[in-house]
Design a protein around this nucleic acid. Structure first.
Lengths: 144, 144
DNA sequence: ATAACTGCAAATCTTTTGCAATGAG
DNA sequence: CTCATTGCAAAAGATTTGCAGTTAT
């Protein structure tokens, strides 16, 4: 999905495209990894120093309403945000080294599914975050 | 693992067993579901009205140090806490109706594992939370 | 006895909100 | 023109911290 698609989804739902909103979405769109609120604010302030924190928070609501936002909540760090651009249900492989996150498609194992079925549990949604080191960071670590 | 085991783990690491700490741990131990900070404080205040919020927060650090704490962070609710009593890596099936959580053992699917291996991603840890309705809540919902 | 622990109050950090001004459609 | 959006400042909520007094070992 390219950037204009995102903007169209926004407009089709009746939201206005303000300069701030465009920058706020760009920040996520052009980052190759989920970003913290601090990084988000920094990016946007670079493009428009007047952008206010509360504007970002309000746009989080907008992006959630559009179903375009992924929130990632590592155990030991602040929440991070990313655009959710694939229609398929997916999860992130998150590198503990460089922070890069890659979306991968989800498949709960059959064994898992069986356990859940046996309990007659009606599964509605799930959240899976995978942490480790990407190939590049792994190689760097080995060298040092 | 029974309650005394938990206390022994605590003492073996050199922590003291104070009245407050005992109550704080009891609250988690005797709850059949992960509890919010609010519920946690309420339980402890019932047993000892002087217990302070910051004491609970400080004991979170202790329990984490002991590797006994699970934090569950639903998308739309506050963090919830539970004791992590099984040695095996496991995850929670969390009921959106009654809040009850059941630990289940984890098994990432082979397909999943293959995707990760193909990327040469060095997986260190993962976090999986499953939400839905338990049998009882599901039945109740159907009736109404 | 003494080091760990706690309560309290204040500090810090994150997120939300009311309101008046601004700007997109 | 009109209503959504924004900036600002203040509020609310969550978590942490310094300190002096208390308690388990």
């Amino acid at each position: 999905m390219d950037f204009n698609n995102v903007i169209n989804i926004l407009k089709n739902k009746g939201y206005k495209l303000t300069n701030q909103r465009k920058i706020i979405i760009e920040a996520l769109y052009f980052s190759n990894k989920p970003i913290s609120m601090e990084e988000w604010l920094q990016y946007t302030k670079n493009k428009n120093p007047n952008i206010n924190l509360s504007t970002i928070y309000r746009n989080i609501d907008v992006l959630e309403d559009l179903g375009l936002l992924s929130k990632i909540r590592p155990k030991d760090e602040n929440v991070k945000y990313a655009l959710n651009l694939s229609e398929k249900h997916s999860h992130f492989l998150i590198c503990k080294g460089c922070g890069k996150a890659e979306e991968i498609e989800c498949c709960l194992s059959k064994e898992f599914q069986k356990i859940i079925d046996d309990k007659e549990f009606d599964l509605i949604e799930h959240n899976l975050e995978l942490y480790g080191y990407c190939k590049e960071c792994h190689n760097k670590l080995k060298k040092s």
